[in-house]
Amino acid sequence: MKPILIIAEVMDGCIRPVTWELIAAARVIRDLIQTNRAGGKRKAAQIAVIVPAQDPVPLAREISSLTKVDVLALKVPTLVAYTSEAYKECLAPLIQELAPSHILVAHTSQGRDFAPGLAIRLNAASISGVNQIRSDGDGLLYSRPGMNNTRNMVLRPEPGFPLVLTLTPGIFLARPCQVKDPGAVMVREISFGPKQPVRMVHQKIARRENEHQALKKAHTIVAAGRGIGERSNLESVARFAKYFSASALGASRPLVDMGWIGYDHQVGITGASVAPRLYIACGISGSSQHLAGMKGSDWVVSINKHPEAPICSHADVCIVADVIDFIRVFLEQEDALQGKI
């Protein structure tokens, strides 16, 4: 059986937690392959993790002691920080040598950046943003979002090629814990630069600190999306937010990009990841990057004109209406109840 390889996600010299999810997904793939084969008595595919880093051994030990899997510490003395060029250059020869059936990468800003090019280098099939893996008897099927997140496309790789997958974080959940019988840790050293012409030089990671405090503290977030129509309608969404105590006004990315509201209000992977008691999405269609940033909310209410919007699949309550009209009616009713009218 060909092995299933995982590329650990390393950032700032640490293993990113999404790596545990990749291991969980590798186990799903291994088990599906095993069940699919007649008899199922042959040895299951081996799972191994590759950790590319300047000093990968401690990281490799951490992974093996928390997951039992074998880990290959890929020591690259010049690898100060991630670049797609360095990763492809260092990983491709090692992967070719190991001849895996699958190469699992996180669908993150890093994984999305190098995986497609790596697939070309390996002459591999490549499926990005996988959110479900299943088997139909003929083999494994991989589901991924398309059509503005309103549909899932189910793909089958052609046989005879290795398969590079990038896996959407937050789907294949895993809780790593100390194990008695950790996997083996092997070390391989590889050089990258300075002899090769290095064309990508990492400078720094620019961070934003202490933003999104209001969103993170709020018990209720009322968030506006493009469906509110006009900038001036933000006022009525803000009024709706004020109706709730301990609340904050959120926004989807396009509103921030258009300059309607500050970055401090942005919810989503590239903004704040939030988990309030109540999340009310006003005119938000629900891109996967937005959904990933608010799916930890206890309760989700969506107000949107379009019943087809992806957010409707991820809300507890769906109100199909013009969001501004609905807010007006809701607040008028509340005013009436409190005798203000």
Binding site: Y82, T83, T108, S109, Q110, P197, R199, M200, V201, H202, Q203, K204, I205, A206, R207, R208, E211, Y263, Q266, I269, T270, G271, A272, S273
Partner: peptide
Amino acid sequence: MENGCRDCLDIR
């Protein structure tokens, strides 16, 4: 990158 961070690099 995630969480509002940006990866800064020079490309030839």
